[in-house]
Design a protein around this nucleic acid. Structure first.
Lengths: 230, 230
DNA sequence: CTCGATTTTTTGTTGCATCAAATACTGAAA
DNA sequence: TTTCAGTATTTGATGCAACAAAAAATCGAG
């Protein structure tokens, strides 16, 4: 009964259990687009792929389902989600609100010395685009955004944003093999970095919002085309 | 075995398993403040309380941990989170962004006929306050907000907001037994309902934001006092 | 009495067998 | 060929026991 609030660890020092490993591995595969939307995931398949029994595998799947990185398609079938237009719009609205907030807060605390790191990642994005390595470009793009957001010192916010990226990751990679990252993104990123250098939160937010909206319009077009041709 | 007639209604397309039952029951207990911040939750205790084995109980706990409704306090201890000032500020910033968005979108699609339902809940809040039944007032307050947000037709957004409420639920109930819902909240709710009637999204958003900020200031004060007296 | 080491208990994790439900499959009848 | 009933297989869920690690309790030395 006598309880005293202890110091909380924010980074949730998760134990290195097998289930946790499968969970994080699945998340990365989802963001990297290793699964196709609509692909069915079964407990025993996951268990076999990761070399563990069904209990931790089902564990990982259930966790992904609760945070909507995977969804129920039927009584006994979890599948990789494929976004509808309405869901894309919803996620985009949320991204504008949350990533805009993260961009602002990050700008306030941004150490100018960290600009090099962003430049570095942007270089990787450009290089990947030159080589038409779009998965790598997508991944580097994710690193750019989350490196920026991390400087907000708002871990709950960053984790929530990551859930949104998870939600659209598979669809992005599947529908969008060659155009997920366009050159226009580089302009937005450059504008963001300029704003960071001058400590202008509104400027950085605007740049990020434009980046999100650019991606939204392109994704919307591809989804619409797919729907109309079906 | 046990022949308890479990009534599992609705639950939409989601699988309704015993683990899911424990999961949702724990969530409700968390929001209702049945647990105190810092309270340690063990797998076997949960399993015993809900009359099931350790597997689904651990399942439910792990899911709560991944969405940060519970947190790791040590290698083998999950506890009910107690907010620090910095975490309260972070959650509040996120609530302003997300619940403000939900309020706006809900207003656009709000059917005027539903005003009665909101009035009804507000009546329950007032009645509970009269009887000093603060847990019930808190619960009805949650229903008011989420009934409103539901009209946004943005399920991902609503689920994300619920996660934030989960995050602060325990602290709210523990630190704040008698003042979590003040009469000032009624004014904000009334302003929101007026805005809904007139289809003024900005008005409703402003009312909800004021509601959130009012709660923030009071919670901040209580947390500060607790910190200073230690 | 205090402190540190050792033993005991608690607790999370995992593998596995089993159950019930859902799906796939087979084959016969129309 | 199509359809549908009945069977076999797949699959998620659950309980249980064993294991390892951490926490708690115990005990002994100073």
């Amino acid at each position: 009964m006598s309880e005293e609030p202890e110091q909380q660890e924010q980074s949730s020092a998760k134990g290195t259990s097998r289930g946790d490993h499968a969970y994080t591995a699945l998340k990365e595969k989802l963001i990297r687009g290793a699964f196709r939307p609509g692909e069915k995931l079964t407990v025993r398949k996951i268990a076999q792929d990761f070399g563990l029994s069904s209990t931790p595998a089902r564990d990982a799947l259930n966790r992904l389902v609760t945070e909507r990185a995977l969804i129920y398609a039927g009584p006994k079938t979890v599948v990789v989600p494929s976004l509808t237009l309405s869901q894309l719009r919803e996620v985009t609205d949320m991204r504008l609100a949350l990533e805009g907030l993260a961009a602002e807060k990050a700008t306030e605390k941004f150490p100018v010395g960290a600009l090099d790191r962003l430049e570095n990642i942007q270089g990787r994005i450009n290089a990947a685009l030159d080589q038409k390595d779009y998965p790598e470009a997508l991944w580097a793009n994710k690193e750019f955004h989350f490196l920026l957001y991390g400087y907000s010192n708002m871990p709950i916010l960053v984790a929530t944003i990551e859930q949104l990226w998870l939600r659209i990751g598979a669809t992005l990679n599947d529908l969008y093999p060659g155009f997920a990252i366009t050159r226009s993104g580089a302009n937005n990123h450059r504008a963001a970095m300029e704003g960071l250098q001058n400590h202008e939160p509104a400027e950085v937010r605007a740049a990020i919002e434009t980046d999100i909206r650019d991606g939204y319009r392109q994704l919307r077009r591809v989804i619409s085309e797919r729907l109309s041709e079906k």
